[in-house]
Design a protein around this nucleic acid. Structure first.
Lengths: 146, 146
DNA sequence: TAGTAAATTGATATTCATTCCATTTTTATC
DNA sequence: GATAAAAATGGAATGAATATCAATTTACTA
């Protein structure tokens, strides 16, 4: 797998009959340049406007939906009133998890992945085919826990 | 611990200087009568109106916030456009998790709790004091996976 | 290369959950 | 029962997200 991220997205778009337009390209660039920042649609819109001022907000929303559909990004929810997005960097579903500070709202990423056992157990017992999971831990970061 | 749920809530309210008003009481009743249903504010509002037609939607929102603050209920998010609430039945934070069917949207509860190891590891490595967690598994229920 | 159908875009209108605000009602206290 | 404080109210405001629609762009075909 030596294909670049953009090439990969382009292929996925083509596969479903979509095109990689300039607008979509700029949106993807912004997301790429802000990995780990969990941007909201509005934030993406504002950054995209710097590079492509004619773009409309609707296009940003549409493109985010499209990219989510293609599993290029996925939606996060930190209960702050808007959706946030993150690149789905791995080519399967085992992404990282989030620590959310209850005091300052900071979001820290964790790369541990000890959930296989749990998934296996649930699949056996529960008669449920697991495809993805989403784990959030709430607590206090090292600055706020004092 | 032989106190009833309502008594417990009443005590918690009093502790923080809040009162158990009729409206709050009715809202709590509705939540109690719908355990396991993950009601949204609108759904709660509609059911509460049957018992107490004069109540306003804002009151429902306010009460839900209040009850969440007191750890009597907690907020869930199933990406269906609204928040949903669930009773916090255990007296500490180790509640159950949810299986969400990607096809029919059904939500199934799981009681497993194998996350202690993971939390311990994160606390050691990450310099983060964990207070709560939230785990969702996405996949297909036994009816939809065929 | 011209012409046509399909996809995409951007501005605007709309929807819907949630919050805000001024007013009214309820509760507790003396 | 009078009074002050707290809580609840409806309606309006807000703000994120979606839908609408005419205009533009793109891909394809003759």
């Amino acid at each position: 797998m030596k294909t670049s991220f953009i090439e990969d997205v382009k292929a996925k778009l083509k596969e479903k009959g979509y095109k990689l337009t300039t607008q979509r390209r700029v949106i993807i660039d912004v997301i790429l340049e802000n990995q780990g920042n969990h941007l909201s649609p509005e934030e993406i819109y504002s950054k995209v406007k710097d590079k492509y001022p004619e773009i409309g907000l609707a296009t940003v929303y549409r493109t985010l939906q499209l990219l989510e559909e293609l599993n290029v990004i996925y939606k996060l929810n930190f209960n702050d009133g808007c959706n946030r997005y993150e690149i789905n960097s791995g080519n399967d579903y085992h992404h990282h998890h989030h620590l959310i500070c209850l005091n300052c709202g900071k979001v820290i990423e964790v790369k541990l992945d000890l959930l296989e056992d749990l998934e296996e157990k649930i699949e056996k017992e529960g008669d449920f085919k697991i495809v993805d999971h989403n784990v959030k831990f709430f607590g206090y970061c090292n600055e706020c826990k004092k």
